[in-house]
Design a protein around this nucleic acid. Structure first.
Lengths: 152, 152
DNA sequence: ATCGATATCATGGGGCACTATGGGCGTCAA
DNA sequence: TTGACGCCCATAGTGCCCCATGATATCGAT
């Protein structure tokens, strides 16, 4: 299984390091990467992290946009300039930088959440809150669909 | 027969493990999996579990959605981050994590229920309650249909 | 049909391997 | 000199693998 799935929360140690879940590491390693690239999610207080292909995914989307629109420029800037590298040490840990803390609110613990082709890093409580919200929204949507479909 | 059918309840041992019914296991094995993936059902206190194809089914659906709509993000989050792995040990058992207990209320026993392409895991009593409710609803619906159709 | 032999399965427990976590120490740069 | 960072090793917890046992079902023989 070469997908980022599930979620785990690990503690940041006194030196500001945190272990990337072994399962995620093995996927990264299998893909032949020793470095990760991280973006600050636009809509969420989380980081999107993964190998370089994290970018190509968005790049493809960029190509489909009007290259003269301001949005495209913004996107490009966001992707290529606003990101940061996460260097894995010998034990599969990364150091949590201010770059990450600012955007996510991460302080003492980090929740790693799979997102299929990449993964996310969250403040545990915010992750939990988001999870609850997502469930609620999806359940709501399902109810709506049942209402309309149920008439037949 | 490669379908998940019927239901069985097994006990969780002192180490927090429970045997997946042999019949279910044989299906999983035939599909060539050693790991299962489980999702917390949106509308029921149960877990939907199965092989990775449990996801691909949804993934296909995801592809057809607008990738930038909130719903698509929600779906992706639910599928990839909110789920968890169930690792089968050499004897076909899985360890019951808090992840499962919280959502299902499972404590000492687990009811495995077939669902054709995948299966579900329930707290035995809740399963029984749900079963009763479903029967009742179906009977009710049938009565309704008889009333309207019966006029002919 | 009864009874015994055998295979299958759920359950129990020991022990090892791996992972997360903590900390020491040297190096380089401010 | 001090602090940040990279590299190394130590340790504790727990997850996983292996083997044992008892119950139940299946099948064959008498």
């Amino acid at each position: 299984m070469n997908r980022f799935l599930g979620h785990v929360t690990n503690r940041i140690d006194a030196k500001g390091r945190v272990s990337v879940p072994a399962h995620f590491r093995s996927i990264i390693q299998a893909a032949g990467h020793t470095e990760l690239y991280a973006l600050r999610s636009l809509h969420l207080p989380a980081l999107d992290a993964g190998g370089p292909e994290l970018l190509t995914r968005f790049d493809n989307h960029l190509d489909s946009e009007d290259p003269f629109a301001e949005t495209a420029d913004d996107m490009s800037f966001y992707l290529h300039a606003d990101g940061g590298f996460l260097k894995l040490d010998g034990d599969g840990r990364i150091t949590v930088t201010d770059f990450m803390r600012e955007h996510t609110g991460i302080s003492s613990d980090v929740t790693f959440a799979g997102a299929n082709t990449h993964f996310q890093m969250w403040h545990p409580e915010r992750f939990e809150a988001h999870r609850a919200k997502v469930r609620q929204r999806l359940a709501e949507k399902r109810r709506q669909e049942n209402l309309t479909a149920g008439k037949s």
